[in-house]
Design a protein around this nucleic acid. Structure first.
Lengths: 390, 390
DNA sequence: TGAATTTGACGTTCGGCGCAACAAATGTCT
DNA sequence: AGACATTTGTTGCGCCGAACGTCAAATTCA
């Protein structure tokens, strides 16, 4: 029952320091003292505590031609890892991600057929065992994080429905946790992408973010409010793809439903450039260079509908930054001013004042980083508890 | 620089206790011990601290036929007040609201012409002075809270635009603070209504809430995410009225813009019952009883469009509860199952599982309570600081 | 009336941070 | 090159605030 003071303050301060060096990179003890407002002696004690727990290292001071006694640099221990997993239709990506955001090892396993939850768990466990015996022999794997293209119930990591994987009510968290013996977190891929862009990408440090990602399977997204990811009651928040935005002219409507991801879709973009399929950079390059009137018109049509959907979100959430990823980035980049103006035409002027619509900057690592961040969450918020459990 | 421990823990615990008795009503010291997890002796000390600060009182134990020594009841000191102000087109409501949520005095001042920000400040100061000399002689007024029908910039309480009051960039917070000498908070009326419904109304204790209110001036709203009100970057969040929801059939469209509050509006409801104007209960009664086919059809039309707008919000935010106030409650109540089903038809099934669409329960006091809550915020989060400033 | 139960009151203990004095390491000035 | 200024690590001490244990008080129940 000593949660209010003894452990409470200690845990809080340990967490703050670990988060700082995790998010900002290596920092001198003097810098930690300044940015936490804690006393020098307290910082020394807390850092020593984290060092004993194997979470951070103290390195030789930086040669920085500053006057005064040099301050040791505190850096995260790169040997602390989580395993990030991203099952997709045609492949499963699995990687080890360090507390320093390094990715010492990564594999993309091509799949002949749709992978089942059980196969996923077995495959993850098998890879971890192999890595532990090899490349990651001296590392410490503390958790597993999965980014799943589907609805994930936050309470128990149950995949309610991942249509492209054909997973329905798959207890993937428990399966992976049982197979690996590691604490496991599961999240929606787009929501984890939003977290990654918030922490390290286009929306770094921004407290109010709307993130939309366009993928082959549709449009997903995530929100950051109060500087925290928004899950909602069940963890299903951020599903912009199923929204129905107003469509000004019937000529712009293609689908009966009026659902955003039926109107604004990768398939329709592929169609206008007459390609059966293409990977994301290829499609982006094609569309950026095209002079086909039909393609330009289709981009403009989709941009217009996207603008209304974004304006709706801006009116409700008043974010500082809207981040667009996947093919939505391609649609936006061709005319970012036009998109911003179109959003402004439908959103309230006051909400537009502080708004910046940006393109995502994290590349293919985005989901791995997002999943890793979710997996690290426990360690970051309770460094000593997670150390003891080691 | 002692914010992490000494004052920090103390302040936090004082705040928790004050919030508990403020939100839940009088509680015995034993109940506080249980629900905070703090030690009996610590609770005794903290309560004594709050008593010295004049924020709570200790009352005689409740006769509750429970075995054991009776525990003193801790209740908020009802003499601690804030002044709530709600300027509207035709009247200004001003009231004193206690920390116990009592409203010892309230006045509605009818206005011949639109009131200016300066007149508002003067009127508030004049009323406070009069009350201090009279009915509130032995009370302690700690702050002023305003609920304004318009966009309010959170940073400085500037009213950016309140179209119905004809206020543009009105520094109302500073005007009232200067006129009264009291700390002053300003908020959007619908956002404050959302807070009130969250703390004491239809969404009591719910962490993820979408609130929409239909008023004469349009549709406003507010969000609760992570159990906290959402302001967004500038404080303008919650403006559902300006959204453009998808409208399935062109026959259902009435306005060119497709803006929600142009389609779903009080004026259109008044029109179908052939009334030039009516207050809220009158309109609600008329519509609840009507058998006019045109009125029933118009209710259904507005209900359908509202459903799409709500479904969009549900997909993005995955709330546990949607609360509807004002004439939106009237639209909903006539067929709540139908509305819920219509939202379900456009929202993801998973997000519908935990969803409850409800009608607001707080009556005309809603805005006064919401504004009071905002005004009390400082005292609640830092009881000793606010005591010292007394 | 007495036993059981619950809680308040009080003195003590302990965890955790701030503080001050001193030592160490570096840049700067003459 | 050497003295000085500056910054920061180190160490011991003190204080704040909450927990704990013991005893007393107040109530219910048998």
């Amino acid at each position: 029952m000593s949660e209010q003071t003894a452990e409470g303050v200690r845990q809080r301060n340990l967490s703050r320091i670990l988060r700082l060096v995790h998010l900002e990179g290596p920092l001198s003890r003097a810098a930690l003292t300044e940015s936490t407002g804690l006393n020098r002696s307290t910082i020394a004690d807390l850092v020593a505590h984290l060092v004993r727990g194997g979470l951070v290292q103290e390195l030789a001071p930086d040669r920085s031609r500053r006057v005064g006694r040099p301050s040791p640099v505190v850096a995260v221990d790169p040997r602390v890892l989580v395993i990030s997993v991203n099952p997709e239709v045609d492949a499963l990506t699995i990687a080890a991600v360090g507390l320093d955001r390094g990715i010492p090892i990564r594999e993309r396993i091509d799949l002949e057929h749709l992978i089942t939850p059980e196969e996923t768990a077995a495959l993850v466990a098998e890879r971890i065992a192999a890595w532990r015996a090899g490349a990651l022999a001296d590392r410490r794997i503390v958790a597993v994080g999965l980014a799943v293209p589907g609805l994930v119930r936050a309470a128990d990591g149950l995949v309610r429905n991942a249509p492209h994987l054909d997973w329905i009510d798959a207890p993937i968290r428990d399966l992976v946790a049982a197979a690996t013996g590691l604490p496991t977190t599961v999240g929606n891929d787009a929501s984890l992408g939003a977290i990654a862009e918030h922490l390290y990408g286009a929306a770094r440090g921004i407290d109010n973010v709307v993130y939309l990602n366009g993928g082959a399977s549709g449009i997903g997204g995530g929100l950051i409010v109060h500087g925290m990811p928004v899950g909602g009651a069940g963890g299903y928040a951020g599903e912009f793809g199923q929204n129905r935005p107003g469509i000004a002219s019937d000529r712009d409507r293609r689908a009966n439903s009026g659902v955003l991801e039926a109107e604004v879709s990768r398939a329709r973009l592929l169609a206008v450039v007459a390609r059966p399929s293409a990977d994301e950079p290829t499609l982006a390059a094609l569309l950026a260079a095209t002079t086909l009137p039909d393609a330009i018109a289709e981009l403009a049509r989709q941009r217009g509908i996207l603008a209304t959907a974004l304006a709706n979100a801006v009116n409700v959430l008043n974010p500082s930054v809207v981040v667009l990823g996947g093919f939505l980035a391609t649609i936006a980049e061709r005319d970012l001013e036009g998109l911003t103006a179109a959003v402004g035409a439908h959103a309230m002027p006051a909400s537009m004042e502080g708004l910046d619509i940006r393109v995502a900057v994290l590349a293919e690592d985005r989901l791995l980083i997002g999943a890793a961040e979710a997996a690290f969450a426990d360690t970051l918020s309770d460094p000593q508890g997670s150390t003891a459990a080691q």
